[in-house]
């Protein structure tokens, strides 16, 4: 071990463990979450009703699922702003198909396939044509939403009775969407944290050139992420359709910002290379707690929006600050 003893000029000292834990951005998310629960419980005694919080979470579970994948996209150094529009379009295609006599299983497959295709299109524009993903997905965000409106018009398309109410299905007393969100978090957390695929996402996001030189197939991995994004958006879109009982073109409107908010609040670094699934998982709960708290406290919807906006900015500043402190 004498070989690795460093002189002060050559290497910085090892940081104490508490420092390492404290500067993890998820730590901030976790503290905020505890703080939110505490404040909420002071505002209203009903707030601490677990069933109520779980029920509230079903409103966010679809966005949360997509935010988990979005976290991986952001770590890889890209962004996707089209998922909420993708949710609306794939749900509209599904609803339109079944309303026109396509059997339900096939209609579901068509909806999911449409989502995947939308992901493929994003991937093609970003990777093959080398257009910045923020531009591409602002474009497709508008286009997918527009197509949904063309297809569905201004009306709601009904879905069959048996398909309605995924949020009412209980597994061990927990609503199904919440269960799906938790299982997905565990699976993606393991993928990102333990597999070569996950490791290479971090490598690409930290330095794509170095990653390519080291033999990482950066384009392939990014394409896979955009396509996974499309698939997950479609799943979320179909789940939302079940929860609402009908599909309109404005399904999930503005959801992309909630998803970005979850990733940012969870400590994902907007310039790539850093972030965790755990962070986004905690942030999704934090968002539900904060929103529910504001509803319980009877705040105006407009005020609630302002709070979310401030939260987004503060979270970005905080992560940037933490990361700039940990690497001088």
């Amino acid at each position: 071990m004498t070989d690795t003893t460093a002189t002060p000029r050559e290497a910085a000292a090892v940081r104490p463990l508490w420092h390492v834990v404290l500067v993890r951005p998820e730590t901030m998310t976790f503290v905020l979450l505890i703080l939110g629960i505490f404040i909420g419980s002071q505002i209203s005694p009903y707030f601490l009703d677990v069933a109520y919080i779980l029920k509230s979470f079903t409103l966010y579970a679809e966005f949360g699922m997509v935010a988990l994948v979005l976290t991986m996209v952001i770590i890889a150094g890209e962004i996707d702003l089209s998922p909420a529009a993708n949710m609306a379009l794939s749900a509209a295609i599904f609803a339109f198909a079944q309303a026109n006599g396509v059997p339900m299983p096939l209609a579901i497959l068509i909806g999911l396939g449409a989502g995947v295709l939308m992901g493929v299109f994003n991937a093609f524009m970003v990777i093959a044509l080398q257009i910045p993903s923020i531009i591409v997905t602002i474009g497709t965000l508008t286009a997918y939403r527009g197509l949904a409106q063309v297809l569905a018009g201004d009306q709601s398309i009904r879905v069959p009775e048996w398909y309605i109410g995924i949020d009412k299905v209980m597994v061990l007393g927990i609503p199904l969407p919440v269960v799906i969100f938790i299982i997905l978090s565990i699976v993606l957390g393991l993928v990102l944290g333990l597999t070569v695929f996950g490791r290479q996402i971090y490598l690409i996001g930290t330095n794509e050139v170095s990653a390519r030189y080291a033999g990482v197939r950066a384009k392939r991995i990014k394409a896979a992420l955009f396509i996974l994004m499309g698939f997950m958006s479609a799943v979320a879109g179909l789940m939302t359709a079940s929860r609402l009982g009908s599909v309109r073109y404005d399904l999930g409107l503005g959801g992309e910002l909630q998803m970005v908010l979850m990733a940012m609040l969870g400590g994902t670094y907007i310039f790539g290379g850093r972030g965790t699934i755990l962070g986004t998982f905690l942030a999704a709960w934090l968002l539900v707690i904060v929103s529910t708290g504001m509803i319980v406290a009877n705040w105006l919807p407009a005020t609630q929006l302002c709070v979310l906006g401030v939260l987004l900015i503060v979270s970005i500043i905080a992560t940037n600050f933490i990361y700039s402190r940990t690497q001088r």
Binding site: T195, R199, Q200, L203, T206, N207, G273
Partner: peptide
């Protein structure tokens, strides 16, 4: 700096970056 290191990642991750098959 531009094509070799992953500046913010650990030395460990940097050293094993080209041998995914060996570490996994």
């Amino acid at each position: 700096a531009a094509a070799g290191i992953f500046r913010t990642l650990s030395v460990e991750h940097n050293i094993t970056a080209a041998v995914p098959g060996k570490i996994a």
